[in-house]
């Protein structure tokens, strides 16, 4: 009994620990987000939040629902697999409300050169030209229809 009394101060110290631990558990229960651990060791709600971020590229299917002419023209040519927004840029706002944003027609001198400027680094089979030599400054669209770039007479642009 005496030993117990002489160790009393130790129990006070231990008491502090227990108290701190209880306080910790109380705060923890209050602070940890509700969805934490729903799927794993993270805030489950974060998944839906990330999924809810706004879309800026509408995707070609949205474009094609209205622009059937262009889609048809494109589907016949070499650019069939190039999606609309690869050249026209992000246009979800336009898809949502066509009046809200009027897409700007891309400058073919810049746009075409971006992919088709000749460089040894590009895959050999990819059609590429030196823009300066190729057209002597004549805009690309003069000869090539961007949605179906092959020149009919020549049987395809190389």
């Amino acid at each position: 009994m005496n030993a117990f009394k002489d160790a009393g101060h130790l129990f006070r110290f231990a008491g502090l620990f227990v108290l701190a631990f209880v306080v910790f558990l109380l705060i923890r229960g209050y602070v940890v987000p509700k969805s934490f651990g729903q799927y794993g060791h993270y805030r489950g709600a974060a998944i839906a939040e990330i999924g809810a971020r706004p879309v800026k590229y509408a995707g070609h299917e949205a474009c094609e629902t209205c622009h059937t002419d262009q889609a048809n023209a494109k589907s016949k040519g070499k650019h069939a697999h190039v999606n609309c927004e690869a050249c026209h840029g992000a246009l979800a706002k336009h898809a949502d409300d066509p009046a809200a944003v009027t897409p700007v027609k891309p400058d073919s001198a810049v746009l075409c050169a971006r992919c088709h400027t000749a460089t040894a680094a590009k895959p050999k089979g990819f059609p590429q030209v030196n823009p300066a030599d190729h057209s002597n400054g004549v805009p690309c669209a003069t000869c090539h229809q961007p949605h179906n770039p092959a020149i009919a007479d020549a049987g395809g642009a190389k």
Partner: peptide, 14 residues
């Protein structure tokens, strides 16, 4: 993730 969960592809693929 905000695109692929809505049936779209990624912006880079698009």
């Amino acid at each position: 993730y905000h695109r692929i969960t809505k049936g779209l592809t990624t912006a880079c693929c698009e």
